[in-house]
Design a protein around this nucleic acid. Structure first.
Length: 417
DNA sequence: TCTGGGGTCCTAGGACCC
DNA sequence: TCTGGGGTCCTAGGACCC
């Protein structure tokens, strides 16, 4: 019987490496990867966190997610470059094209990670490590950045293998290697064990993946419920999830959120931010040809308290004005005049828009739909800023908020394997 | 903490129904 | 109602991922 081999591949320090390669290609003599550098947002717009770091930056103990201020404290000469999401998308696509030459079964797990399934492929069965090196070297030689390849018999173990040592490495983590390679690792290194779960496990004296693996499953289940069963299985290398080629499963919802450069303290500006979010979310709905059946609004106060409020719709919609109106209602129902730093809009319970029900008892949105289509067309032709509502002029706000992803045929992230 | 933005899934509690 | 239990739906919040 031919063994089932799964590869997990992820780009090392993806955003930073891609930026570095891009600069080299444009005749910048400096390779960002060789100096302490990070990709990060603009602190004056309150977007100041580390999104990716170089290896020299890592040596200053700079971690992803911390503030640029804290990072600069650790390393005053730190180089900070802004993110460039359309570049990341291009690099990701180029990487996937190479993977597809190795296996038809490629699952995009995120912008910088893929799973490849080599089930029953003789060429790989004989020497998967050799194939992995070929793959890794092709990316490095043709695209200029390095990847890690993890090899095993399921996705969880392949992913854990890829994390072992970076960069530019190939690792195996077969079931028989679990006790030596995976069990000694700290519990927080296990996929799906984050900060909160780590703390709970530590309070029970579970410090390593091996200690979790050998803990009584019944007890774990008692205090961590289904999440406990999941991570106990992971700790024992158990995972039966299939490699799903990108695009064959539907997106469940979509949303945009934004940290506003200034505190929002009045209803008018709050509604304006919600309008900019409604513009982007509803345009994405129309592009995906789906209607939203549920609308949720959320916000974060300057004190960092989070609130959310949602409502199911009797008549699913993709109409900008209708979504904006409902979003504002939801917002008004829970907002207590706290100053806000962050606002979000998310829609879910999506359904196909090909037989949209005529809303008999609500106002007719046909004119709005036609206007939405016209605006979409203008923006697709002349760019997102070609047309905007006059209320945004001089407001200090963007007329469309949220990452505009041109071509969403794969979900950026699925938290479960 | 001078703390981003895009997702998914799970859980607890309340409403409602039989 | 001085009320039982179970099922389902809805909502808010929290956990995790990159």
């Amino acid at each position: 019987m031919v063994k089932r081999y799964i590869f997990h591949i992820d780009a090392n320090s993806a955003f930073l490496s891609w930026e570095a390669v891009h600069r080299l290609q444009h005749n910048d003599p400096l390779d960002l990867r060789t100096v302490p550098a990070v990709v990060g947002g603009d602190p004056t717009r309150r977007h100041g966190i580390v999104l990716a770091k170089s290896i020299p930056a890592k040596e200053f103990k700079i971690i992803t997610g911390e503030t640029l201020y804290a990072a600069r404290q650790k390393c005053p000469e730190l180089l900070i470059v802004p993110p460039n999401y359309s570049l990341y998308r291009q690099c990701s696509d180029a990487m996937v094209e190479i993977f597809k030459e190795f296996s038809p079964l490629v699952q995009r797990f995120s912008v910088d990670e893929c799973f490849l399934d080599f089930s029953g492929m003789e060429s790989v069965a004989n020497d998967p490590v050799k194939i992995a090196h070929e793959l890794k070297n092709r990316v490095r030689n043709e695209l200029g950045f390095t990847v890690n390849v993890g090899i095993s018999t399921n996705k969880l173990l392949a992913k854990m293998a890829g994390e072992l040592k970076k960069p530019d490495m190939v690792h195996t983590l077969f079931p028989e290697e679990i006790p030596t390679k995976m069990w000694p690792l700290p519990i927080g290194e296990l996929f799906m064990v984050g900060r909160a779960t780590s703390q709970k496990l530590l309070s029970r004296g579970i410090r390593t993946i091996g200690e979790l693996a050998n803990y009584d499953l019944g007890l774990i289940k008692q205090f961590l419920k289904s999440q406990g069963v999941l991570i106990w299985n992971y700790a024992n290398g158990i995972d039966y999830s299939p490699v799903r080629p990108g695009g064959d499963f539907a997106v469940k919802g979509m949303g945009n959120s934004t940290t506003i450069p200034f505190d929002v303290e009045d209803r008018y500006n709050a509604h304006l931010v919600l309008l900019s979010l409604s513009e982007s979310v509803s345009a994405r709905l129309r592009q995906a040809k789906v209607l939203a059946g549920l609308i949720a609004v959320s916000f974060r106060t300057t004190e960092f308290y989070n609130f959310s409020h949602q409502r199911k719709l009797y008549n699913p919609t993709d109409c900008t004005d209708e979504i904006w109106k409902i979003t504002c209602q939801l917002f008004d129902e829970i907002w207590n005049k706290q100053p806000l730093r962050h606002m979000g809009l998310r829609v879910s319970e999506l359904c196909q828009n090909d037989f949209q029900q005529v809303a008999l008892f609500t106002r007719d949105y046909n004119k709005q739909r036609q206007a939405d289509r016209a605006v979409d067309l203008i923006r697709s032709k002349y760019g997102p800023s070609a047309i905007c509502r006059s209320s945004f002029l001089y407001s200090g706000l963007r007329s469309i908020s949220g990452g505009v992803i041109e071509n969403e045929e794969f979900p950026l992230m699925t938290s479960l394997l």
